[in-house]
Design a protein around this nucleic acid. Sequence first.
DNA 1: GTTGTGACATTAT
DNA 2: CATAATGCCACAA
Length: 132
Amino acid sequence: MPAPKKSFHALFRPLSAEARRKKDSLEIEDDPSLQAIWEVIARVPRGKVSTYGDVARAAGLPGRARQAGYALRHMPEGLNLPWYRILGSGGKIVFPPRSKHHREQARLLRSEGVEVTKGRVPKSAIATLDEI
DNA sequence: GTTGTGACATTAT
DNA sequence: CATAATGCCACAA
């Protein structure tokens, strides 16, 4: 079994001791709400994007955009989810403009044809709720 | 039980 | 357009 290509997950801030404990005990991966969110993210079409709020709604968790963020931070590596297709409201990258994450997200989006100017994508690139 | 934090969103200034 | 104030809610300390 070849080692999977280093995922961006590895670039993220290290999990706290408590979060790591949970992760190791698989409590997070088994959480139904988080799984629902991950499934929605996996359905966002290539070349399009969605937002934290919409992802949460599509997962049956209206008003819980922050939970979508939590789910992304705790993405299981094996799923290879298109994390970079998830933006803040209005289609803005949520990471600080010059941060590594911001640049990487913009790069990946452009790599699939999504225009990114000043950390923002065209409204036309945002998938509608029924698309996800 | 209480307090602080956060890959958010919306509204007001 | 930028920043601040609120609202929000799960999680961690």
